[in-house]
Simulated scan of single mutants.
Amino acid sequence: MLRWSISFLILALIAGVLGFGGIASASVDIAKILFFVFAVLFLISAVAAALRGRLPS
């Protein structure tokens, strides 16, 4: 999921440089949403692993 977020961010940067404002804006929004979903899932898995007594790898 983090890979998708980075891909949309790169797409937004390229679209912004080329002058496609609408596509750049949409790509940034998608990248933000995917990044926050990734961060929440990571935190949930880290807490679950800590509660089980294992160190996250």
Results as ranks from 00 to 15, higher is better:
residue 4 W to C: 04
residue 57 S to F: 09
residue 29 D to F: 14
residue 57 S to Y: 12
residue 19 G to L: 09
residue 2 L to F: 08
residue 5 S to P: 01
residue 5 S to I: 00
residue 21 G to P: 00
residue 40 V to C: 07
residue 41 L to T: 07
residue 49 A to F: 08
residue 26 A to F: 15
residue 8 F to K: 02
residue 8 F to D: 00
residue 33 I to E: 14
residue 19 G to C: 08
residue 52 R to H: 12
residue 53 G to K: 07
residue 54 R to P: 00
residue 51 L to R: 12
residue 1 M to Q: 14
residue 27 S to Q: 01
residue 53 G to N: 08
residue 43 L to E: 13
residue 28 V to Q: 06
residue 34 L to W: 03
residue 46 A to K: 06
residue 3 R to D: 15
residue 27 S to M: 07
residue 7 S to A: 13
residue 23 I to D: 03
residue 3 R to M: 14
residue 50 A to N: 06
residue 51 L to I: 15
residue 31 A to M: 06
residue 25 S to H: 08
residue 34 L to S: 05
residue 25 S to Y: 12
residue 1 M to G: 09
residue 50 A to S: 11
residue 33 I to T: 11
residue 33 I to V: 15
residue 44 I to A: 04
residue 27 S to P: 03
residue 15 A to M: 07
residue 27 S to R: 01
residue 29 D to W: 13
residue 25 S to L: 13
residue 33 I to G: 13
residue 42 F to G: 08
residue 32 K to L: 09
residue 29 D to R: 09
residue 25 S to Q: 10
residue 56 P to K: 01
residue 8 F to A: 00
residue 45 S to D: 13
residue 11 L to F: 10
residue 43 L to R: 06
residue 1 M to T: 10
residue 40 V to R: 01
residue 57 S to W: 12
residue 17 V to G: 11
residue 5 S to C: 01
residue 32 K to I: 13
residue 37 V to N: 12
residue 27 S to D: 08
residue 38 F to S: 06
residue 52 R to Q: 10
residue 30 I to G: 00
residue 39 A to N: 04
residue 22 G to S: 12
residue 48 A to S: 15
residue 11 L to M: 10
residue 21 G to T: 14
residue 22 G to Q: 04
residue 24 A to T: 05
residue 54 R to W: 09
residue 44 I to R: 05
residue 13 L to R: 12
residue 1 M to A: 09
residue 31 A to S: 15
residue 47 V to E: 09
residue 13 L to F: 06
residue 22 G to V: 04
residue 5 S to A: 08
residue 39 A to W: 02
residue 10 I to G: 01
residue 1 M to E: 13
residue 55 L to N: 12
residue 36 F to I: 05
residue 36 F to S: 10
residue 6 I to E: 14
residue 23 I to T: 10
residue 17 V to R: 08
residue 7 S to P: 04
residue 1 M to F: 07
residue 49 A to P: 00
residue 20 F to D: 03
residue 39 A to D: 05
residue 35 F to V: 02
residue 27 S to K: 00
residue 22 G to I: 01
residue 29 D to Y: 14
residue 34 L to Q: 04
residue 45 S to G: 03
residue 11 L to I: 11
residue 12 A to C: 05
residue 20 F to N: 05
residue 20 F to W: 08
residue 53 G to R: 11
residue 12 A to P: 04
residue 14 I to F: 15
residue 50 A to Q: 04
residue 11 L to W: 10
residue 39 A to I: 02
residue 45 S to I: 15
residue 11 L to K: 08
residue 22 G to H: 09
residue 20 F to R: 08
residue 14 I to G: 03
residue 53 G to I: 00
